[in-house]
């Protein structure tokens, strides 16, 4: 216990666990979501302690920020839009026949066993074991960027990243497909003050986001974090009704969603000539290509995240048809 930071670590770990439990057990759903957001932020803090600032940023921005917004929006929707909840319960979105407590305890017991087993396995794993460290540092010069995480995301394992963008695309297609024909009840409108605040803040956020994207090449930050921050712009626009999606915007929206994917994939394929395989960027153009991809992907990510937040596809409502469009 010679390191004072250990105490901090212990406290932080304990707090994280406590928040995790609390967010699952607290009765009020709104409270649960709030606790979850705090949990996410503390987790990000813990990852900073583990020298993973990029991850922490991503978690804070996307894992906690965007997710939190989505959760709150859903909660709001459930409570006020569909009106199913009313005042009846803030406890539960869906009343079910209760599962017997015996079953719950059995689950808990099994999970306890699992925890035990996993802990044993974890403790038996090599400390600071083998990794990609050497490989990465060896390959860094040829990557075209200075920041290793970015190099991995956009070069070494660019295929994964492309597929990750595809996941986002799949998600937005699925969400558009799922949400439809909802009664167009008014979205939450922010007060005047907030609108003013938004008008002031928006440019700043855009700048921060762009910076993050740029910085990603050398320092923590990058397309996803940048995209998330830019998505926040979209969120604000939507919330303040500064921007209201219209059916006519669908084409542009679609293009925005697919932009990152298409460019990423196209570049990956286009470079594959002259004996090269896909994703094998020519060394002298690597940085430019990566920046191009990153930039466009950021736009896509921002648009996608904002669309995910907004939910349904902007269609002209034709009441009967849409409601019963099955």
């Amino acid at each position: 216990m010679n390191d004072p930071l250990v105490i901090f670590d212990l406290l932080l770990g304990g707090a994280i666990i406590a928040l995790a439990i609390a967010s699952l057990t607290v009765r009020d759903l709104f409270a649960a979501v709030v606790l979850f957001i705090i949990f996410g932020l503390l987790s990000a803090l813990a990852w900073v302690r583990l020298s993973a600032p990029d991850v922490a940023l991503a978690e804070a921005a996307i894992g906690t920020g965007v997710t939190g917004a989505l959760l709150l929006k859903t909660l709001h929707h459930l409570r006020f839009v569909t009106g199913t909840l009313g005042h009846q319960s803030a406890l539960s979105v869906t009343p079910h026949t209760p599962v017997p407590s015996g079953v719950i305890w059995a689950n808990a017991a099994f999970c306890g066993l699992i925890t035990l087993g996993l802990a044993v396995a974890f403790l038996g794993a090599p400390q600071a074991g083998p990794g990609f460290d050497a490989l990465v540092s060896e390959a860094m010069p040829a990557s075209g960027v200075e920041h290793p995480v970015t190099a991995i995301l956009l070069n070494f394992r660019a295929y994964d990243t492309l597929m990750e963008v595809v996941v986002l695309l799949a998600a937005v297609i699925a969400v558009w497909q799922i949400e439809r024909g909802l009664s167009d009840a008014p979205a939450p409108v922010m007060g005047e003050v907030w609108q003013g605040f938004a008008r002031l803040v928006l440019p700043a956020i855009v700048v921060v986001g762009t910076y993050l994207l740029w910085a990603g090449a050398e320092a923590p930050g990058g397309a996803f974090q940048g995209g998330a921050v830019l998505a926040a712009v979209g969120l604000l626009l939507l919330l303040t009704r500064a921007y209201v999606p219209r059916p006519g915007h669908r084409g542009i929206a679609r293009c925005a969603f697919v932009l990152g994917t298409v460019v990423f994939a196209a570049v990956a394929l286009l470079v594959a000539s002259g004996g090269r395989v896909a994703f094998e960027y020519p060394a002298d153009h690597a940085k430019a290509l990566i920046l191009l991809i990153e930039g466009l992907v950021t736009i896509s990510i921002a648009a996608t995240l904002a669309a995910l937040f907004h939910g349904r596809e902007p269609v002209a409502l034709r009441n009967k048809e849409d409601r019963n469009d099955t």
Partner: peptide, 11 residues
């Protein structure tokens, strides 16, 4: 730290 897992976690 090894950067690869970081990238994975972000993904």
């Amino acid at each position: 730290p090894d950067p690869v897992p970081h990238a994975l976690v972000i993904t």
